[in-house]
Each structure stands twice: as structure tokens, then as C-alpha cells.
Write a protein that binds this DNA or RNA. Structure first.
Lengths: 341, 341
DNA sequence: CGGCATCTCGAAACCCGTTTCGGAAACTAC
DNA sequence: GTAGTTTCCGAAACGGGTTTCGAGATGCCG
């Protein structure tokens, strides 16, 4: 049997005709409404089965006002951060009957507006806006007609709901881990100073140092987020302060550079110097020598939370306002604790 | 002026009423049909502008049978490979009026079927199936009613259209680069043997060796795709064959491990030993010491091509069959050519 | 000024599924 | 036997847009 050239999808009327009832009855039978005789219902169900009927969600959405679709508007698909968030959101959505439109604005405001228009004209039920930095981004406004949640990058309008990682807490957590290991001469090599993520983590770490009565060694070094910067910064730092016994880094990439330099100059990790990373990027952390302790921002969880907030808003709940911080998680590996290799 | 709690989107009827015409005329005016007087058209356009009217794509699609949406069914969002492909596809689609549904099946066939159902019931116009390996995957069949293109992972049904990187050519290209540099004692450290990508690249490289009259040093080492494996394999390889002057690796991660080991034992790269990676993963290649030469599979281009094929099929063209190979690209950096640092 | 072609517009049907509401049939109660 | 209930089904309207087709208003001709 050849497939028809144009495989017109079967409609509810087709099912109704085969079952010998009206479309109205077929609809009621398939949706479990109770004004249908059991025998009739079974006939309709059998007919639907036979024709492999799947209802046209467009028509359904047209009437219901709900489409079962959500927009994911990201500003950077290449970024590693948006992917886990998208996954978490997909997790939360996928459980139900929701599908997600993915749009990438490439950080271009025009393109973002364009995508936003397109999404709204498709009558999405909700929108998640994902940024690639934790710095605030312009709000999309409130008169969109659908609930909006900002993930990772918070909105600059505090009457929006934003969900973002708690980088201050993350910095504190990392510093406290090093302190709890007895390290006292701790240096910080961070990333790009223009990123709130870099500054926040340093803030948190400094709070922990202060609380423990420690003075950090040297000034915090800001640069970029690369391995190369980590290497160069470590060289400069250790030349000036050879006494340091731990380095708190702004990212796993930077940590890898620092580890590299430490091996070059023959310092043992973690015995002589402990090294903490940030982000828990597995490709980097688990293949480092030794494996790299890091702070995981729980991005997947963040994405799931964002999706759940959108869901809640769909069910009529108030979506809430302000910036909601999600807690980080400490992942201990061999770069801070020796027996873990 | 406060935004209404429920911002009911403006409909075509609203526009028509404001312009003082019937919905039918309004529709014709906005869609550029010529049975409308210029003055009337302008009135309608102005009214639409005033009300910020954007037509309900659902209703539009309901009638037209075209929804302007495409499904992207991937089996692994975490994989680095699918992301550039998705980007390329988004590029090609985004130019027009098409939006993409993103679904992640997590390599689970049940989940895949579930998502497929959902997508079809949303009346997508086309489907791109993205895999995370280049090994063939089960076909979804032909009676879906929409054009399907398989990207990266080809379908096991040769009457489907698949687009996948030419790994044999990639292997050959890498080997020829090393040969052209005068290297004659070349070893291969590859990834997981169960991956077609690993085997194909080795095949291509061996063809190049044969053509040049060279005998590879030692057996090809298969392992996994990690940096750690690269280190271990390099150690074993160099212990047994200290004479090698180039290593052809199965991935950039493996290359990084190899580079690491070479520095450990004091071999200079590229002077003593040249190293080639695969995938051109910038985070790894540009931060290596020296920077890593690699083969780029042009995945973004692949995604764009896949999207264009779907487009073509929508316009009535035959979608074609078989496996279409996309050419790789050689990226030369310091790990093979010294002056490039 | 009548007859005919042209232009412009709107009523109505349609896409597909849901829901309301009314009616027919079967059943109960007296 | 009649009146009142209940059960089950279908006609019709709806949602938001598109398209067909016919009607009314013009313009042009002789």
C-alpha cells in the first residue's frame, strides 16, 4: 500500500462518520464527557484508533484559548548556560502536553522583538526569557498578555519575576570550603569584571573571608573567562605571592589554566595549593589533573523552576515579582581534597 | 492607563470595525490582495497599526493547512553537536516566518514517539531529526504527512534524506595535512570504536597514508572521547614508539590529553611531534598550548542545509533520498605549524 | 439615457474541534 | 393512559481568519 502523496490528517469528522455519529458526539466521546452511552463511546474510540486520529491542536487551541505551547526566548544558544536551563524547562514541560518554541535572538534587540511578535501571534501560553549573563537585561514589559519569567539574566524591572543563580552565596560557599580545609592564604583569580557573576562571586568570597577573620592574598585579579587568562594570572600571582595555599577561580576554564601553571612550576595540588573552580562544567572538571572541585549553579533546576512558575501562572496563580535566587551546590573533587584523586 | 488584567489580543474584526469595513475586506487589504480600493486599504492598514494587530497564526494555519512551524527532534541536548546544528537550522528558518519546536527525546524511543505525536498534532510543516552520533538511527517512516530530514545521525532507511558530516574525508584531510608537513611517523589515537565517527575518520586517514606510501606507526588506539584517555593512550603509545613525529587524534578532548602528556615528557609541539584534533571545539582548541589544529565539521552549515531541504519540500520540491555528506574544513593552528604559536 | 463592463465591497461558507441547547426516545410514576 | 424524568444524541454557534461569489455602485459606450 503506497502512502498517499498528500497524507491529509484524519479529522474528527472522519472518525464520526466511521463510527456513525455526529462530530459533536465524537468529540464528547473522546474527551470523556459523560453524556454519551458507553457503547457509543467505545465505537468512537475504536474508530479513532483505526484511523490513527490525533486531534488538531490548532483548532483545539483556537477555541480553548490555550495552545499548550510556550516560548523560550534566548539571547545566546552557544552559551553553555542556556542549554541546561532549556533542558530543565523542557523537563518540566515535557511531562505534560506542552511544547516549546525555541528562538535565538543572538543578543540583538531587533531580532528579539521580531521573535517576540512571532511568538505572540502564535498565541503561546507563556514565555521564558533566558539570558547568557547574570547582569540585568531590559524588561519586555507587562502588557504581553502572557506570563513571563526571566531565567539566568534577571529583568531590570523589579515587578517582573526573575530567577537567577545566587552567585554571592556561591562565592561564599567556595571560600568556606577552602577555609574549612584550613587554607589561610587564599588568592582570587576571577573572570571579566564587567560581569555581575564575577563581581558577585568575589563579594560572597570576601564575606566568608571576613567572617573567618582572614585577609585575602593580593588583589582579586579580573581578566576574561579563558584558560589562557588563568595561566597568565596564576603566573603573575604566584610570582608576587609565592606563599598562597589556595586559589579561588572565577570559572572552571580559569581553574584549568591555574592548574596548568601550578604543574609547570612544580607545585602539588591540592597539597601545596588547593584550587576551586566555578560552574562544574564536567568536560573540564572531570578531566583535570587532579579533578577539579567546583560550584554547580544547578541550572537545570533553575530552568525547571522557571517553567513551573509559568505553569502556575497559567493556572491562575499570581506569578510573583522580584528576583528569586537559586542555591548553588558544592562539588568536591581532588583539587581541594587529596584522597579524592 | 493600566493594562487590562486580561489583555485580549485584538482580532481582525476589531480592525475591520475601526476601519469601518467588513472582516473580509480587512483581510484582503492586509494581505495585499488587489480587489480593494487603495484608500480603503490604507484605512485598514492604519487601523491595524493603531491596534497593534497581529493576526492569529493558529486561525491562519487552520485554514491554510500551513502553520509556519517546524519540529526539531533531537536525541541529546547536552551533546555539543546538536547545538550548532540547531543554530544553523534556526538561521535558515528565522529569516522567514517560521518558528521551531524543540523537543529532546533523551535517546528514549518512547519519549521520541510521544514527542512526534505531539508535533504532528500541532500540524508542523516539516521535521528535522538530529542525532548525537553519526551512526544510523531508526527511520521514523514515510507516512508522517510532513517532510523529514535527518541531520548528523542518518536514517537507516536509504529512502529517507539524511545529511551528515563526511568523516572519511575529514580523516583524510587531517592525515594529508600532517603528510604535507613532512611527517612520516604518524600514530592515531581515536575515540570510542563503537562510534561510526571514530571508525570513519580512521578509514579516511588510512587511505591518505596508503596514497602517500606511508605506514602508520603502531595500531590505532581506540578508547573513549575523553582527555584522560588521550593522556593515557599517549603515554602507552610513546613508550612503545618513541619515534613518532605526529599524532592524529579522534577529538579535541583526546588531543588535549595528548598535548598534556607530551609536555610532561618534554617533547616539543609541533617541533618534535605535531598534533591534530577533531571537531574544532573552540574552548579546547584556542586555549591549548600551543593552540590546536583541528577539523571543523561545519555543523552550523549542516543544520542550515537541513532546514533548506525542508523548505524546498514545503514548496513542493521532491525532498530527495540517500545520505548527503557535508564537507569538513581544516583549521590550522600552532600544534601543527610552529609560527602560528 | 439605456446597456454593459468594471471596480469595490460584504455575506456566507469554510477550516476543525468544542460547547450549548433543544429534541427524541425510553423509562418511571400515578 | 398520561404526565414527568432521564438518557443520549445532533444541529448550530463559536473562535479568528481566508476565500468564493454575488450584489451594488460606478464608469464608459453608443
Amino acid at each position: 500500500m503506497r502512502a498517499r502523496k498528500i497524507a491529509r490528517p484524519t479529522t474528527l469528522s472522519d472518525v464520526a462518520r466511521l463510527a456513525g455519529v455526529s462530530p459533536a458526539t465524537a468529540s464528547k466521546a473522546l474527551n470523556g464527557r459523560d453524556e454519551v452511552a458507553p457503547a457509543t463511546r467505545q465505537r468512537v474510540i475504536d474508530a479513532a484508533e483505526r484511523l490513527a486520529f490525533s486531534p488538531n491542536q490548532l483548532a483545539k487551541g483556537l477555541f480553548a484559548g490555550r495552545t499548550g505551547t510556550v516560548g523560550l526566548l534566548t539571547s545566546d544558544l552557544e552559551g553553555r548556560f542556556v542549554i541546561p536551563i532549556l533542558m530543565g524547562a523542557e523537563d518540566a514541560f515535557g511531562a505534560g502536553q506542552v511544547n516549546a518554541f525555541l528562538c535565538d535572538a543572538r543578543g540583538d534587540e531587533i531580532r528579539e522583538q521580531h521573535h517576540l511578535r512571532a511568538l505572540l501571534s502564535r498565541r503561546i501560553d507563556g514565555l521564558i526569557v533566558v539570558g547568557r549573563q547574570t547582569d540585568p537585561r531590559p524588561s519586555l514589559g507587562h502588557d504581553l498578555g502572557v506570563p513571563v519569567v526571566y531565567a539566568y539574566a534577571p529583568s531590570d524591572d523589579e515587578t517582573d519575576l526573575s530567577i537567577t543563580p545566587d552567585n554571592v552565596e556561591a562565592g561564599r560557599m567556595a571560600a568556606e570550603h577552602l577555609i574549612s580545609l584550613g587554607r589561610t592564604r587564599i588568592a582570587q583569580i576571577s573572570g571579566d569584571r564587567s560581569y555581575a557573576a564575577a563581581r558577585d562571586r568575589v563579594t560572597g568570597a570576601n564575606q566568608a573571608f571576613k567572617a573567618a577573620g582572614l585577609t585575602p592574598v593580593g588583589d582579586v585579579m579580573f581578566g576574561d573567562w579563558s584558560e589562557t587568562w588563568g595561566r597568565d594570572a596564576a603566573a603573575a600571582m604566584l610570582a608576587q605571592h609565592p606563599e598562597i595555599d589556595a586559589v579561588l577561580c572565577g570559572s572552571d576554564q580559569i581553574s584549568r589554566g591555574v592548574l596548568d601553571h601550578l604543574r609547570d612550576i612544580g607545585r602539588s595540588v591540592p597539597h601545596d595549593v588547593a584550587v576551586m573552580g566555578f560552574d562544574n562544567w564536567l568536560v573540564l572538571t572531570t578531566n583535570a589533573r587532579p579533578q577539579l572541585s567546583s560550584i554547580d549553579a544547578n541550572l537545570k533546576q533553575l530552568g525547571r523552576t522557571a517553567a513551573e512558575r509559568v505553569f502556575a501562572a497559567l493556572d491562575g496563580e499570581d506569578i510573583g515579582t522580584g528576583i528569586e535566587l537559586t542555591p548553588p551546590r558544592l562539588v568536591i573533587r581532588g583539587s581541594t581534597v587529596a584522597r579524592l584523586g
